[in-house]
């Protein structure tokens, strides 16, 4: 990640905040989510265009590797802007009601922890841990299920992938 890239991303984040505040202040609080998503997509398009101009043109071949990505990104930017205008004008339904976002974020955290965990504790332990945590998160408290599920899973994974397919599953640095 070069310094230029950091700068670009910082500018993007700042602009996003400004746009968010603007939409809340101007009474569009019930569409803030859509504004943010559309604006982020616009920024992604801009990012790709900016990165594309850094691509070297090889003297070897006639074609320019930047042409098509800039084409897609440009079109994406145009449509993202159009969407932004539609949302701003209130032509879209309001943002959906937030459900149990907390649970979703916890889910993401558990999964991320599992992926990291695979490197240290190995595939079987990490995924078994994930199964147990997720079962608890989703409201399954029966001990039988909590114990049998990871065991059943580990057995299946071992039989199917290690023995049958001979695909090595990652072994952790510290154990298994």
């Amino acid at each position: 990640m070069t310094k230029d890239l950091y700068f670009f991303l910082t500018v993007c984040v700042v602009l996003l905040f400004i746009v968010m505040l603007a939409s809340i202040r101007s009474g569009r609080k019930e569409r803030v989510g859509q504004v943010v998503v559309a604006f982020v997509l616009l920024e992604v398009a801009a990012l790709f265009i900016w990165m594309a101009y850094g691509l070297e043109i090889s003297p070897l071949m006639d074609s320019n590797p930047a042409t098509v990505p800039v084409g897609w990104a440009g079109a994406l930017a145009v449509f993202a802007v159009y969407q932004l205008i539609r949302v701003w004008r209130g032509e879209t339904p309001p943002d959906p009601k937030t459900g149990r976002i907390g649970k979703v974020l916890l889910t993401v955290v558990i999964v991320a922890a599992c992926i990291v965990g695979i490197e240290y504790a190995g595939f079987y332990i990490a995924t078994s841990g994930m199964i147990i945590l997720m079962l608890l998160l989703l409201g399954e408290y029966r001990v039988k299920v909590l114990v049998l599920s990871p065991l059943g899973w580990s057995l299946f994974a071992w039989l199917c992938f290690e023995k049958l397919l001979r695909l090595g599953l990652p072994v952790g640095k510290f154990w298994m």
Binding site: T127, M130, M134, L135, G139, S149, W153
Partner: peptide, 10 residues
């Protein structure tokens, strides 16, 4: 679903 989803994940 609460049992199915963790399995879908793994």
């Amino acid at each position: 679903k609460r049992i199915l989803y963790p399995f879908i994940f793994v």
